[in-house]
Computed example of a mutant assay.
Amino acid sequence: MKKLFLVFLLCCLVKVTYSQDVTVDKEKLFDLYQTQRYADAGQYLKTVYGENVSDVKALNQMGYCFLMAGNNVEAEKFYSKAYTLQPLSLPILFSLGSINTRRGNTEKARLYYGEIVKIDSNNFNVYKLLANLYPLPTDSLKLLYLLKANKINPTEGDVASDLAGIYSLKQAYEKAYEVLDIASKADSDNLILQKEKLPVANQLKKYNEVIAAGEKLLKDGADAGVVKDVAKAYYYTKKYQKAIDLFKMLEKMVMQNEATLYYTALSYRALKNYPQAAIYTKKTIDEAISPNTPNYYSLLGLVYEENKQFSLANTAYKKGLQFDATPGLYYRLAILYDTRLKQSSNALKYYNLYLKSKPNATDDKEEIKFAKDRVAQLNLAD
């Protein structure tokens, strides 16, 4: 097939050679194509035809060579010249749209693809390409182009997946399921579509379908998303131990999250295993709290302190301690009581807590020295 394509290109060049009254070394060009030296082929054609060539076929050929070589600047130059001569050519418009997409010139790409829509309103590929130029799933034009593409070819997997994703965001699960169902039935070996169908089916309470399809998928490997969806289906069908076994598999994969731990706790509770239910409820709480939460409260307290809102600063620092007793929070409270609130006993208390909390001996060297000095001074004052 590749050789036939190269022969076709060379035949086109023969016609170009005739019209331009120039000679192309067909064997040399064929060799460059065969070895995929497209940049050399483009340079060779430039030397043959020159920069001012006005033949569309020659311009297309040079544009193609530079496009294949990854030289988008040169490719766009020759395709743009071809476009001025044949503005209604779909291959030229597709090439210019592709080049501008690669270069991040989204608006220009949309314009070229928009010209294709005017010429061929039933072109599936152009609607798919246009949809990809709108990255936000909430963009109405992305939905519009996906709908048009899906209507033309409802069995194409990529478009079906993207369209179903938007429907799911809108909580239109029936529509999402229908789109994925049609595409997955047309391509029964498409595991991506099958996996994406599971959470949608769960939302529609098609639990038995999720379990049957999910268990088959799990035979090909323990995909975390599939494990989670099947586990949830087992939970809702009251097969709690099976749900627990799968949720624990996620823990072994270090893929657990707040929701999976919560369902594990609920499953243990349903089985009246209250000790494990308590353990997993605590794990759920820990997972829900960001490890950075104490830092956020420390920052909030510092902002209040700098704005002379000392009572609010005190509250913020102590709130942070509820999440994690970090050295930094103890130090901020000590400084607050010592220098702002003038409460020596509380300052001494938090300086001692700071020193006991094992601050970093290297990074916090100056703070440690200051805290030790103040402890000594405050003790003498007493």
Rank of each mutant, 00 (worst) to 15 (best):
M253D: 11
T315C: 00
K318Y: 02
N257Y: 07
L336Y: 04
K239M: 07
K308V: 08
K239Q: 15
T339Q: 10
G225E: 07
L250P: 01
Q322M: 09
N257E: 04
K358M: 05
Q322R: 14
P359I: 12
F247Q: 08
T284V: 03
V303L: 12
L348E: 04
L333W: 05
L250M: 03
Y350C: 07
N295L: 10
K349R: 08
A347G: 07
T260S: 14
Y317S: 01
K242M: 11
L333D: 01
Q309R: 15
I335S: 03
Q241V: 12
N352V: 09
Y317N: 01
Y235I: 10
A347T: 03
V226R: 06
E305H: 11
D324C: 08
M255C: 13
I335R: 05
N360F: 02
A231M: 09
K308Q: 09
Q309V: 05
T264F: 06
T293R: 15
Y262A: 03
L355H: 11
Y337G: 00
A224H: 12
L271T: 14
A325I: 08
F323N: 06
I244Q: 08
F310Q: 06
K283R: 14
Q343E: 09
E306Y: 12
G320C: 04
K272M: 10
T362I: 13
E366A: 15
N295R: 13
Y350R: 06
K358Q: 11
E306R: 15
Y274E: 07
A361G: 02
K232E: 13
L271D: 09
A222N: 14
L299C: 02
K232C: 02
M253S: 14
N257G: 12
K349M: 06
T326N: 03
S311W: 00
K242F: 01
K356T: 14
K232Q: 12
A334K: 03
A277I: 05
S311F: 01
R269K: 14
K272G: 00
Y240G: 06
K319L: 02
K283T: 04
Y240H: 15
Y262N: 10
D324H: 13
L261S: 05
Y296I: 14
N360R: 07
E287Y: 10
Y240N: 15
Y234L: 09
T293M: 14
A270F: 04
S357G: 06
S290T: 11
T284F: 09
Y297M: 06
Y236L: 07
F247N: 11
L261H: 10
Y280H: 13
L246N: 14
M249W: 04
E305Y: 08
D363M: 07
L355P: 12
Y350E: 05
N257V: 01
T237C: 05
Y234H: 14
L302D: 10
T315R: 06
N346M: 06
K308F: 04
S344I: 02
R340F: 01
N352A: 03
I289E: 05
K252S: 12
E367N: 15
A288D: 03
L355M: 12
A231C: 07
K282V: 13
N346G: 00
S344C: 00
Y337K: 00
T237D: 07
M253G: 11
K238R: 14
N295G: 09
Y350D: 03
Y262M: 08
D229T: 10
E305S: 14
L261T: 12
S290W: 11
E367P: 05
L266N: 09
K238E: 15
P294L: 02
F310C: 06
D338T: 02
